[in-house]
Each structure stands twice: as C-alpha cells, then as structure tokens.
C-alpha cells in the first residue's frame, strides 16, 4: 500500500509528510511529528480530547484522516502560545484551576480559543455550548467555564507571568465557592 504525501501548515510552519492513508491526523501528529498535546480519549469523537484547529475551526482530529489536512492549516495546542507567552485562556486555566488530571485540558483550551476568536463577549451559555463536545471527568466544568469567561473579560489581568505564577489573590467572579 502506498503512502500519501501531505503538505500542510502546522502551527505556522510548512510541513511535508508521508503517511499511510488510513492514519488519522491525531496519530500522525502524536506518533510521527512528536506533538503529543492533543490526546486520544475515545477515538470516536465523543470526548473532544483530540480537538485541534483545522483552518481555524475546532475539529476532533481522531475522526480526521491525515490526508484530509493536505493544503490546510493545522493549529494544535502547542501552537497557541506565541513567543513563549501563554494565551489568556491558558493563563486563566492555570489561575482558575480549570484542570485536574489534565488529559482533557488541551481540547478545552483549543475549543475555548476558537470560541474567543469568533466571539469576544461570550455569555456563559455560549461558553458551555462551545465546550459541549469536550468531556472532563474531574472538574465538574465549573472552573473551566470560569476560566474561559475570565479569559474573555479580564484579558488585562491575565498576562503570562509564568516565571513565578502568582497564587490567585482575588477571585474575579465572586458568586459561589471558589
């Protein structure tokens, strides 16, 4: 069987790669190209752990063949931070504890990133709809939703100070337990 040659843009870099036609984009990224940020959870599009951006839109990469990426722009969670600076969504996830075990986190961050690219002022319902295809078995989602809302509305306060990540001093949303 012949390999398919795929030319695509991966995190702003042009890539030419040969892969068997039955391999998914997720497999090629993780096993061939070393980008293990996207995770395989269910492998059938149910959990969203493999979410990445294809031409700027979130897709479940376990259900995308690598061959489909030909000529397109792929952005994984590794490609979101620019010049070593985390995005507001990433900082907010850290500040608000939007993760526990972490396996779903990259999928949530990519989905949230895509939401905020298209909607700068999302409501809580918008946020919950945007992450509707992502499953988290640890957090109960509440802190994830808070983190995404904080990333949308408190960008100024969410600059990356990753050298010494501060402990959260004041909650930005005060209703409910933190």
């Amino acid at each position: 069987m012949e390999q398919t040659t795929i030319r695509f843009t991966l995190n702003d870099r042009p890539i030419t790669h040969a892969a068997m036609p039955y391999r998914t984009l997720l497999e090629v990224l993780r096993d061939d190209l070393g980008l293990t940020g996207s995770k395989e959870g269910c492998g059938t599009g149910d959990c969203g752990a493999c979410t990445l951006l294809l031409d700027g839109k979130p897709v479940t990469s376990c259900l995308v063949l690598a061959a489909e990426a030909d000529g397109r722009k792929v952005t994984t969670v590794e490609g979101l931070a620019k010049d070593g600076k985390l995005t507001p969504v990433q900082v907010a996830f850290i500040r608000y504890g939007g993760l526990q075990c972490g396996i779903c986190t990259s999928g949530f961050i990519v989905a949230a990133h895509a939401l905020l690219e298209s909607n700068k002022t999302p409501s809580e319902a918008d946020v919950r709809a945007a992450i509707g295809g992502n499953l988290c078995r640890c957090t109960g989602y509440d802190k994830i939703v808070r983190a995404i809302l904080a990333a949308a509305y408190d960008e100024g306060e969410l600059v990356d100070e990753s050298a010494s990540m501060p402990v959260m001093e004041k909650p930005l949303f005060t209703e409910g337990p933190m």
């Binding site: 979410t51 294809l54 979130p58």
Partner: peptide
C-alpha cells in the same frame, strides 16, 4: 447534531 467540532466537519 453532535458537538461544535463535529458540526464543523
């Protein structure tokens, strides 16, 4: 149908 990521494809 399904999730936003699946409706995109």
């Amino acid at each position: 149908p399904a999730s936003p990521a699946i409706r995109n494809v």
